[in-house]
Amino acid sequence: MRLHLLALLAKEPAHGYELKQALEQTFGSAYPSPNIGQIYVTLGRLEKDGLVRAVDVEQSNRPNKKVYYLTAKGREVLEIWVDEPTEGPRVRDEFFMKLVLAPLTGIADRMALINRQRRHYLSLMSDLNELLSRTPPTDRVAMLLIEGAMLHLQADLDWLERCQEDLA
């Protein structure tokens, strides 16, 4: 979450709760709602590493709030993150390890493993379908996130089929 917060702070200084709201507004209903405690812990670490700095802002009738802003070092780290290619999805899939290794022990039959996994993927897909139907079409970021998850899942299912053809 470190770099996500840096990116938001590059836009404008903000306090912890504003960052939580900004994440929620940007990613919409599809994204896990960020934990406020985790945001404060992360901000503390970023401050310790010199990537952000905080100023106390006085509030009437309330305790001071800490407003964070990006340092030059923080901007540099953010720029490196943006410029780098991002790691692709994992290929050493946990299920694949199970599929290859479990039958060697005699614990499980490959066809049974594949069938169970297929049902699991399809039930995830059915959840995503449901989620998509509940997402307002105007919430484009959320829609794209869900479609991305669906495409990954379709690829996993296609791969499962290939495993079935060659291993079962």
Partner: peptide
């Protein structure tokens, strides 16, 4: 879903709808 393999049914079952509480859990594949 009925799954066929080599001309035979190898799996036949209902799709469980889990209806997880939060959307985030679904996305976080």
């Amino acid at each position: 879903v009925v799954s066929l393999f080599d001309g035979e049914i190898v799996d036949d079952g209902r799709i469980v709808r889990r209806r997880t509480g939060t959307a985030g859990e679904v996305i976080d594949l």
